[in-house]
């Protein structure tokens, strides 16, 4: 029985990532074992679920339909186990996707409180400042900032966070402190994922002012842009949350605090058309409670 359940879980992952070896590894299986299990499953079901080529493994038409059904069944099984347990205790694995800043500053520091309640739950944090494909990466819930790239995910808005500009006191001493947006023309901005263009827009008193700023440094992770600002390399744009620690310690100060630099949404994203895992729902509720506190 457990063999069949493992085979089904393996089938769903292999169907999503298009690779037996990767799917097998996630379940602690070697590639040969994974291939064997899938072949046995196809034997039991009575039809080919995968088309195997030299380069990849793809689902047959029957396999694609079977995947949708099995996915729903496994999710229902997960829910049933959770409900039967009745304690609210979570088990299994929870794969969380998010950005570098958010994982380091908001999620990890709060994990001890969550994990102590659910000792049987295994958490995997997938940190990436670029686009994450929830489906192929098997992400149960992703926490992302900013506008949603498309409607391929179901989103639950957690909150709005203020966007800010910050710089090190040493940088401002050397280059001067901007008092209005146009002063930024003389400055250097660090481009990071939180703000990809060298143009900054501000709102104040019924006006919108925008200015083009020079940049001598680009970093692909937000934490890198913040570290660059702390090192005195320029002005960084980020969410207020991302620099709270540095603002409190004085390593960074706000630039143009009187001007509204906008805000961005934090959204919890779930795969479209798929039931939300109890663990994903529970963690999202937990995080929301923590962030709003």
């Amino acid at each position: 029985m457990n063999d069949r359940l493992t085979a089904l879980k393996l089938f769903v992952r292999a169907g999503r990532v298009g690779n037996f070896s990767i799917a097998g590894r996630e379940l602690g299986l070697s590639q040969p074992s994974a291939s064997r299990l899938i072949a046995a499953l196809e034997g039991d079901v009575g039809t080919a679920l995968f088309r195997r080529t030299t380069r990849a493994v793809t689902l047959t038409e029957a396999g694609a339909t079977y995947l949708m059904r099995i996915d729903a069944i496994l999710a229902a099984l997960d829910e049933a186990d959770h409900e039967a347990r009745g304690t609210g205790e979570l088990r299994g694995a929870l794969r969380i996707g998010t950005s570098s800043s958010f994982v380091l500053r908001e999620i990890i520091p709060r994990l001890p409180r969550f994990m102590i309640e659910h000792p049987a739950l295994r958490i995997e944090l997938l940190s990436n400042d670029r686009y994450q494909d929830l489906v192929t990466e098997g992400i149960d819930v992703a926490f992302r900032f900013g506008p949603l790239p498309d409607s391929s995910a179901t989103a639950r808005k957690l909150m709005d966070v203020q966007r800010v500009l910050t710089a090190a006191p040493s940088y401002l001493d050397a280059r001067g402190t901007p008092t209005m947006p146009s002063d930024l023309a003389h400055h250097s901005v660090i481009i990071g994922p939180a703000h990809l263009s060298p143009t900054f827009s501000f709102r104040k008193d019924g006006r919108i002012a925008s200015v083009r700023v020079d940049s001598h440094l680009t970093v692909t992770i937000t934490e890198g842009a913040i570290a660059g600002a702390v090192a005195g390399l320029g002005i960084a744009a980020s969410s207020l949350n991302s620099v709270r620690t540095e603002l409190e310690s004085g390593a960074l100060v706000r630039v143009l605090p009187d001007w509204d630099f906008g805000s961005m949404e934090i959204n919890a994203l779930f795969v479209n058309g798929k039931a939300i895992k109890p663990a994903a729902r529970a963690f999202t509720d937990f995080l929301l409670g923590e962030l709003r506190a």
Binding site: M180, P181, S182, D183, A185, H186, D205, G206, R207, I208, A209, S210, V211, R212
Partner: peptide, 20 residues
């Protein structure tokens, strides 16, 4: 390089703001 748009027509940026 720089813009200042008045959504509220009663508010305008000071011309000195253009100089930097």
């Amino acid at each position: 390089e720089y813009t200042d748009i008045s959504i509220d027509y009663t508010r305008r940026c000071d011309p000195a703001d253009l100089l930097p």
